[in-house]
């Protein structure tokens, strides 16, 4: 069922167009373009519009980036300003020893 190339399914939870959300989305797009070209899907969920979705992914902080696939599920909260941490968090780059 999986293609050879794994697709990164990413969800970014935001609450309105706040500065933090905008920064986070811009950062995310930049990292993905750089490291996961054509292997990613980004879904942006605005909790102000769909508050009921907060429960499903256990969202507390805004913005939160959730990586559903590939496993394991990881969450990265904050405006994603630290590229290193984001890439490690998304398992794109192994953590440095």
């Amino acid at each position: 069922m999986e293609t050879k190339e794994e697709i990164w399914e990413l969800r970014l939870y935001v609450a309105g167009k706040t500065a933090k959300s905008v920064t986070a989305l811009a950062n995310l797009k930049r990292y993905c373009e750089e490291h996961l070209k054509d292997k990613y899907v980004i879904e942006v969920i605005d909790l102000l519009v769909q508050p009921q979705l907060a429960e499903g992914d256990q969202i507390l902080a805004i913005p939160t980036l959730v990586k559903k696939v590939p496993e394991p599920i990881r969450k990265i909260i904050g405006d994603l300003s630290n590229e290193e941490k984001v890439l490690v968090g998304l398992n794109i780059r192994p953590a440095k020893k």
């Binding site: 939870y13 609450a15 933090k20 920064t23 986070a24 909790l47 907060a54 969202i59 507390l60 902080a61 805004i62 913005p63 939160t64 990881r74 969450k75 990265i76 909260i77 904050g78 405006d79 994603l80 300003s81 630290n82 941490k85 984001v86 490690v88 968090g89």
Partner: peptide, 11 residues
């Protein structure tokens, strides 16, 4: 959970 940068608990 990984934290990077600014966030709040709006969620």
């Amino acid at each position: 959970i990984e934290e990077t940068g600014e966030y709040d608990l709006d969620g």
